[in-house]
Design a protein around this nucleic acid. Structure first.
Length: 588
RNA sequence: CGGGGCGUAGCGCAGCCUGGUAGCGCACCUGCCUUGGGCGCAGGGGGUCGUAGGUUCGAAUCCUAUCGCCCCGACCA
């Protein structure tokens, strides 16, 4: 029997001043967690109980489709060099040295570790498919930990990896995960949606994210109210209305115009009396890369053209250039490439790389500019712009790509209805990795014909803390929060209003004991506190049901209060267990 | 990393500008009282004022450096 008076549940009347989001405030106030350092938390009794229940659900569902491993958190540098991620991951990877000076890191995911096992052990197509998973701590040296458990440097992740002989097999493994994830999040009582996702820096093709709407989130989700279209902002597209091109001026060849002091798109458009839609916005970026052997850093220019009224989405840019990171060009670099100060940049007069593999500066052009004519851009000359610019005629792009960020209200790409944008938090991600790791790390199996083939992989993650955090964000009020019974630290709290009253005390003991013997997780608040204190605490700590043991025991009844609705129901003491047997089914 | 803010008792804060015995509320301990929404009365314990250096007869307060934490922008479960 769990008795509050014997337990460590340090509830707080006030939240720490630095807690911003609801889940952070309540996790601290309810005594679930305490902070150790930025983005590093200790999970106390209630928090750990809740996490245990979440991981139990995850494990139960994952065991239906895969096999659980336990892998090291500490990895040698060499392992991460086989995939190239030792350098790619930059400062996000925690690095350390052992006493001999050998370099190690704290794993942020386990693709390398799992693929290494596959490489060494898998020999034949007969051993495929395989789905291997694990639930354990990941470490990421986040540039900015924030929002309590939402973005931290050490966190629990369920990650799994599938190995298949071919794409059709991967489809099956992917679908198995999709189904398992739906069962997991359903059982955790979350309202979520599945959206098309940006595949990220890790490469891969199909990718979906499981998202929970909350203002505390960090992702922008685009969705259509009419059809089922929904996507991460980093992936979302829209059906744009056609734009009227300008008529050519003069002989239709590029024509310089004097635009003194007109630097921004709006300035120039107003000055020339045209819409920003007929302008080209020129963004100058740089890719910095480090040579793995010499350690020398090299930079390469990437110039992006988008429609004057559009915004660049950097994740899309990153996808277009194979996951590389970019930074804005510095004034000096701009002058060097364009021979012009910023504010008057354009694509003319520069020899652009023929394709991404060729030498030279890269010119990426947003698809919204494909087929347009007579546009206006900077002249690469202070105080001048150029009219009559037509892509492919007047300059040769390195490539076209979808680069722009869509805005809310634009037409849905499927049905044309207005798109909306909401903030959300990502709780799970599934995606088809493809051959990235199996290829680079040299995993090979023999197929039916005795021919060597590379297995195709999938990678799938769930953030354990984020399940709890999202659940709290979804269900809280000014007094605290409530969790679904499936993931709450306890299902029922029994609250005798006065433990000085022997009758109340023994009734509470009796009710709690009977519920517990029926398999319910019960917390008995046997503290010698005033009822108000106990009610406030009960409301705070996330337990979905409370049983008040008060004056009504003389009539043989107690009150059952549902935290979420605050509705209370008198139930006869003798029938309490039966009552819960009925309502728990619906609550679960 | 760029920008902003904060470090004083477990939590929330005042004191700093204008240097002179470190304070308030909550929490905690003891006693009494009270018992359906953080009750009341009385007494009590607890603080290297983030750290280091400097100025000064004297520093929480002024100066310098440094560390930590939070928030806003680029990354992800």
């Amino acid at each position: 029997m769990h008795r509050w008076s014997q337990l460590f549940i340090p509830t707080l009347r006030e939240a720490p001043a630095d807690a911003e989001v609801a889940s952070h405030k309540f996790l601290v106030r309810a005594g679930y967690i305490r902070q150790l350092a930025a983005g590093i938390y200790s999970y106390l009794f209630l928090g750990q109980r809740s996490f245990n229940k979440i991981t139990a659900i995850v494990r139960r569902e994952m065991d239906k489709i895969g096999q659980e491993f336990y892998l090291p958190a500490l990895h040698p540098r060499e392992l991460w060099e086989t995939s190239g991620r030792w350098s790619v991951m930059g400062d996000n990877l925690f690095r350390l040295k052992d006493r001999k000076g050998a370099e190690l890191c704290l794993a942020m995911t386990h693709e390398e570790n799992m693929t290494e096992i596959a490489r060494k052990e898998l020999r034949s197509y007969k051993q495929l498919p395989q789905i291997w998973y694990q639930i354990q701590s990941k470490f990421r040296d986040e540039p900015r930990p924030k929002s309590g458990l939402l973005r931290v440097r050490q966190f629990m992740m369920k990650d799994s990896y599938s190995f298949d002989i071919d794409a059709a097999g991967l489809d099956v493994s992917y679908q198995k995960h999709r189904d398992a994830y739906r069962r997991i999040f359903d059982r955790c009582g979350l309202k979520y949606l599945i959206i098309e996702a940006h595949s990220g820096a890790m490469g891969g093709s199909q990718s979906e994210e499981f998202m929970v709407y909350t203002p505390a989130g960090e992702d922008q989700v685009v969705s259509c109210g009419n059809c089922k279209y929904s996507a991460n902002l980093d992936k979302a597209t829209s059906k744009l209305d056609a734009v009227q091109d300008l008529p050519p001026e003069g002989d239709g060849t590029p024509l310089e115009v004097h635009t003194p002091g007109q630097k921004t798109i709006e300035d120039v458009a107003r000055y020339l009396g045209v819409s920003p839609k007929n302008k080209i916005k020129t963004l100058a970026m740089m890719i910095d890369t480090q040579d793995g052997k010499t350690g020398k850093s090299k930079s390469r220019a990437v110039v992006v053209l988008i429609r004057g009224d559009h915004q660049l989405n950097e994740a899309k840019l990153s996808t277009a250039i194979a996951g590389k990171e970019t930074r804005p060009m510095q004034e000096e670099e701009i002058r060097q490439l364009f021979q012009s100060p910023a504010g008057f940049l354009g694509p003319l007069g520069i020899t652009w790389a023929k394709d991404l593999k060729s030498e030279g500066p890269i010119l990426l052009v947003d698809k919204a500019l494909e087929g347009r004519t007579n546009l206006i851009a900077g002249a690469n000359k202070e105080d001048y712009h150029v009219k009559n610019i037509t892509p492919e005629k007047d300059f040769q792009p390195t490539a076209y790509a979808d680069l722009r960020a869509i805005a809310s209200g634009e037409p849905c790409p499927n049905c044309g209805s207005s798109l909306r944008m909401d903030t959300a938090v990502e709780i799970g991600h599934i995606f088809k990795l493809g051959y990235k790791y199996s290829e680079s790390m040299g995993a090979r199996v023999l197929d039916k014909n005795g021919k060597e083939v590379t297995p195709i992989m999938g990678s799938y993650g769930i953030g354990i803390e984020r399940i709890l955090t999202a659940a709290i964000e979804q269900s809280n009020d000014e007094n605290g929060f409530w969790l679904p019974a499936e993931i709450a630290p306890f299902e029922i709290i029994v609250t005798p209003t006065n433990v000085g009253d022997t009758k109340l005390k023994t009734t509470a003991e009796d009710v709690a004991a009977r519920l517990e013997s029926e398999g319910y997780e019960v917390l008995l608040d046997d503290r010698d506190e005033r009822p108000g204190v106990k009610f406030k605490d009960a409301d705070l700590v996330g337990i979905p049901f409370r049983i008040n043991i008060g004056k009504k025991v003389t009539d043989g009844t107690v009150e059952v209060v549902q935290r979420s609705t605050r509705q209370s129901q008198d139930v006869s003491i003798a029938a309490v267990t039966e009552y819960f047997q009925q309502i728990m089914d619906t609550a679960r």
